[in-house]
Amino acid sequence: MESPGSEAARKRMRPYMEEEEDEAGAQIEEKEESEINIAGSEEMELNVSNIMEKIENFTQRVSELLESGKTMFKELSNEFEERLIMIHKEQIEKWQEEIKELRTLDASNEEANIVLHNAQYLLKHTHID
């Protein structure tokens, strides 16, 4: 039979040994999780790499669209400027032609006015005689 002291010592040792076994089990589980995380990390890194490639491709597309848009707007701007200058020139030419016609009409009216004035003068003076 065991002595009461040895039984107490055994009871004290059991929790200590159980803790060691628990710690050993936990370490084994951590190693297994670590191996899973490493495998997961490689997969994650591949996914991250794919996303980074998508970002790079998208950035490249945006850059190309910006350059294309700038070129298009520059061409449109040049065409707009040329067309607006042409419209201005055509309108100025029309107004200058109107001015020329008005001056011709005014000169013609002045000549007609002089002829009428002379006719009035002649009619007044012939009537008096």
Rank of each mutant, 00 (worst) to 15 (best):
E82S: 03
K11Q: 02
A119F: 02
T59N: 03
F80T: 08
I92E: 10
L105S: 14
I36W: 08
F73V: 12
E29V: 11
L84P: 00
I51Y: 04
L66I: 09
L84M: 10
E90K: 01
S34Y: 12
K89E: 05
E21D: 09
S68H: 13
K54N: 10
E75Y: 00
S41W: 12
V62Q: 01
E98C: 05
I36L: 13
I87G: 02
M44S: 07
L84Y: 09
M44P: 04
A119R: 10
I114W: 03
N57F: 07
E93N: 03
E82A: 08
E43S: 05
E101Q: 12
F58M: 04
R10W: 00
N37M: 15
E32F: 02
M17K: 14
S108V: 10
L116C: 09
E97V: 11
F73I: 13
I28S: 14
E90V: 01
E82R: 07
E43C: 01
S49H: 03
E111C: 01
E79L: 00
I51E: 07
K94Y: 02
S108E: 15
L122I: 10
I128S: 14
S77M: 06
I28V: 15
I38Y: 10
E101F: 12
R12V: 11
L122F: 14
L65I: 03
N113P: 00
S34D: 14
M44Y: 13
K74G: 01
L123M: 02
K94L: 06
K31Y: 10
L116N: 10
I114S: 05
E111P: 00
R14Q: 04
K31F: 11
E21N: 04
R12H: 07
R10G: 05
Q60F: 08
E97K: 10
E81W: 00
L102W: 14
I28D: 13
E67M: 10
Q96C: 02
E19G: 03
M86G: 13
R12Q: 09
D22A: 15
E35W: 03
E81L: 08
E98H: 02
Q27S: 04
E29W: 04
R12S: 13
N118F: 00
G5M: 15
S49M: 00
Q120G: 01
G69W: 02
R103Y: 07
A119E: 05
E79M: 10
L123G: 03
E32Y: 03
L66Y: 13
E42W: 03
M52V: 15
K100N: 05
K11I: 07
K74F: 04
M52A: 15
V48Y: 00
N50A: 04
E110D: 12
I99P: 00
A8D: 14
M86W: 14
E93H: 00
E79Q: 09
A39K: 12
K100M: 01
E33L: 09
Q27P: 08
L65M: 08
I99Q: 00
H127E: 11
A8P: 02
T104E: 12
I38D: 11
R14C: 04
E43A: 03
I85G: 06
E64M: 05
